[in-house]
């Protein structure tokens, strides 16, 4: 009895294996040698890409005496959390409490991201789904704006900020992030490709207003797009260092604060590696969670000519 069961199991397993094999063998125009070559090359480059990240993690876990080994070792022997606790102690000694920097970064990232998602989605919905005159012009301006970066606008924005009285306030960093155009661009392309006009049309015939349609029909349909928007805007704001519009220490970000700690000198290396690890964990975690949504969104992001 048992033998028969086992045999059946084996056959089943083998069939399944064969099935998987045929499923993944892309017979058309693929040579085995090429597949292997590509895999090896990918593996090598992937290791090169990740080594510095791993090195940062190792450095952050090394006790002081391991940092001074000659010649230096890549991996850590006796991992310790001491660098992280040192980082917190060091930051507590600073003039502005450590928690304030973290609060600033979190506050700026979260409110900027939320604002951008709402503003950009509204505008994207209007551009993609309401046929008002001038929408093509507005969209082409948005496309042109992707062709230069904030360096160009920074100097004159300083004049604008001082005219508005926003220099040295949260506004100067949060409000401009609301009109981050790449977000609008992505959202508009995705709405065009995945929100069906006939659904909207029937909702309009039922008497629903555009605002209601936007929140109840369009936004649920473009969930991958706003998740993508969240990660893109969030990672930019999270990684923001010193802003030229901010002078006061109490409005500065966590990234700025730890960059001040990263002074040369071997003794501080463990601490600054610890800070780099803290900085990178958050965006990487967010990306891991949202990856499939991001890829779905990007597939609709192409620029048609």
């Amino acid at each position: 009895m048992a033998f028969k069961d086992l045999k059946e199991k084996l056959i089943k397993y083998n069939n399944k294996r064969l099935q998987n094999k045929t499923q993944f063998t892309r017979s058309i125009n693929r040579s085995k040698g090429g597949d292997v070559g590509i895999f090896i090359m990918l593996a090598i480059v992937a290791i090169i890409m990740v080594l510095p990240l791993v090195y940062a993690i190792c450095q952050s876990l090394k006790p002081l005496n391991e940092l001074f080994i000659f010649p230096p070792r890549f991996f850590v022997i006796n991992p310790t959390w001491k660098n992280f606790s040192d980082l917190f102690n060091l930051m507590n000694d600073s003039w502005v409490p450590f928690s304030r920097y973290i609060f600033n970064t979190v506050f700026i990232s979260v409110s900027g991201t939320l604002g951008n998602v709402v503003f950009a989605s509204y505008a994207a919905y209007a551009l993609a789904k309401i046929k008002f005159p001038g929408r093509q012009f507005l969209f082409s301006v948005v496309v042109y704006s992707l062709m230069f970066n904030a360096t160009v606008t920074g100097i004159t924005n300083f004049i604008t900020m001082s005219a508005l009285g926003w220099v040295d306030t949260y506004f100067s960093v949060i409000v401009p992030s609301f009109c981050y155009t790449f977000g609008l661009y992505l959202m508009k392309q995705f709405m065009e490709s995945s929100v069906n006009d006939s659904v909207l049309e029937s909702a309009r015939l039922e008497g629903a207003g555009e605002n209601l349609i936007f929140w109840k029909i369009a936004m649920p349909m473009v969930k991958p797009a706003w998740i993508t928007l969240i990660i893109f805007v969030f990672k930019d704001l999270w990684n923001m260092g010193a802003s030229m519009f901010i002078y006061s220490e109490q409005f500065k970000t966590f990234n700025y604060a730890i960059s001040q700690l990263v002074t040369s000198g071997i003794a501080r290396q463990g601490v600054s590696a610890a800070s780099a690890v803290i900085m990178m964990i958050v965006p990487i975690t967010v990306f891991v969670i949202t990856q499939s949504n991001v890829i779905t969104t990007m597939s609709a992001s192409g620029m048609k000519d």
Binding site: A46, V50, A56, N239, G241, S259, V262, A276
Partner: peptide, 20 residues
Amino acid sequence: ATLLFYAPSISGNIYMVWTF
């Protein structure tokens, strides 16, 4: 693989590691 290749570009000031 996507994560491994994309990670350096979203990891904030991780490029400081090159100075170590």
